[in-house]
Write a protein that binds this DNA or RNA. Structure first.
Lengths: 243, 243
DNA sequence: GAAAATTGTTAAGGATTCGTAAAGCCTAGG
DNA sequence: CCTAGGCTTTACGAATCCTTAACAATTTTC
């Protein structure tokens, strides 16, 4: 019996905040953290783009006024690889910005002077819309992209560049599990849990063997991996090679 | 099941406006009309609920201040049968209303003093994700076409090329289930759920047997299938042979 | 630097999964 | 009660592949 469709590792909603105002970040993180969200804040545009493409998020909160790379540019970069819902932070009443933002693919905006309740309401509205639509179309965005690697849980296929990979069932489940947690470690125990209905014993090497096979098919070198990194005495992690 | 995302006869975007302010309705209709939208306005809550459930809309613009039935109630009624994107019209700055609206299922709001550009931007933002995702899933269609195979749920018939297929009830249900999820895996459990009121046990082979029968009637070779592909340890998938 | 711990890799058989034929079983209609 | 059609179960062969065991390579510990 395969699980295969588990969308994410934990069931916490993961929110990425991109804002150079650390105080505001802290505020948001505290408030959402209390409510059971998992929040990470980064403070520059490039960091934000990287985080958005390296890991899986349920929503992104993006400040339009960033030093260096401007918020619109960040949004555009994110949209190149990602359909994650994006909430823009704009100055209250700055209608032009909001319009441009919405037109290039933001999902909503939040006035800089938002109340915590409004933040929560908008976050919920925006993620609800996504899940509602996903439920409607029976298409729960089951694709994860990591660099040139595309993993599709609907068709259970993986494509590297333009070459489809021929994977065994467990290899695919393993890759999917790693992909939906890209940028975060997965222990052997978690992996075995997800891909197989089996107890994990400390001397169990089967995960290692499958990883080895996977790496071979990915053209990955275990000593200097582009995709699957080993974290000694911890587990494995799928990483974004262009970073 | 209604969705509000189904394409209408014309490819015009259809927008329903629910507002007792006829002047404002006219304004919206004119502006959106120029841009190729098809707009209909109704001026009471009950009319709005009826129109929303009777017809397919791409978006609804809803005034919260309605005589008689209040806007929130209208929204709740609509949400009972319908997932169409809803834009609320609220007084500028009335944060409490906006939050309540978002919480009971609105997708966005529009200040009463909106500019035409902002209206358009929000309309687009709200429908963009829907159309993006729903583009290739005609989920209310009663006919699915896969290459030369046509499956019709209304008549419960399937035709391959010009030859009608003679299917047993379960075979048809199975084919229909696969057809309405074409291009995506269905597990044996899901298939059994849909076609039969029966528990799935791991040693249950009846799905396999029906698939085998279906393939025979489809002239399909299980090792190199044109229609029904086996995904080992996962399930079955209907594929488009010319793709 | 040696020993211990951890991970990488390979190859082989034992286990799983699947396709399909045939037998058994159930139900509706005579 | 019998029949016929259809669904499920059983059985077995074939193909695939998962685990285990063994050894090599690497890193950490002492």
């Amino acid at each position: 019996m395969t699980t295969g469709t588990a969308p994410s590792a934990s069931n916490k909603q993961r929110v990425l905040v991109i804002d150079d105002d650390r105080k505001l970040c802290r505020l948001i993180a505290d408030y959402l953290g209390q409510l059971g969200y998992e929040v990470r804040a980064v403070h520059t545009g490039p960091e934000g783009v990287k985080a958005a493409s390296d890991e899986q998020w349920h929503a992104v909160i993006l400040d339009l006024m960033l030093p260096g790379m401007d918020g619109f540019e960040v949004l555009k970069q994110i949209r190149k690889t990602n359909d994650v819902p994006v909430l823009m932070l704009t100055a209250r009443g700055d209608e032009a910005d909001r319009i441009v933002g919405l037109e290039i693919g933001a999902d909503d905006y939040l006035p800089k002077t938002f109340s915590s309740r409004e933040l929560l309401a908008r976050l919920r509205a925006v993620t609800r819309r996504v899940s509602r639509i996903a439920a409607d179309t029976h298409d729960s965005a089951k694709v994860v992209v990591v660099g040139t690697l595309h993993v599709n849980a609907d068709t259970r296929t993986a494509v590297l560049g333009d070459k489809p990979l021929v994977l065994t069932p467990v290899e695919f489940d393993l890759l999917w599990t790693l992909a939906s947690a890209k940028g975060r470690v997965k222990t052997r125990e978690q992996l075995l849990d997800q891909i197989r209905d089996r107890e994990y014993e400390v001397f169990d090497r089967s995960v290692d063997v499958h990883i080895s096979a996977l790496r071979k098919k990915l053209g990955d070198d275990s000593k200097n991996p582009r995709f699957i990194r080993t974290l000694r005495s911890a587990g494995y992690m799928l990483i974004n090679p262009d970073a």
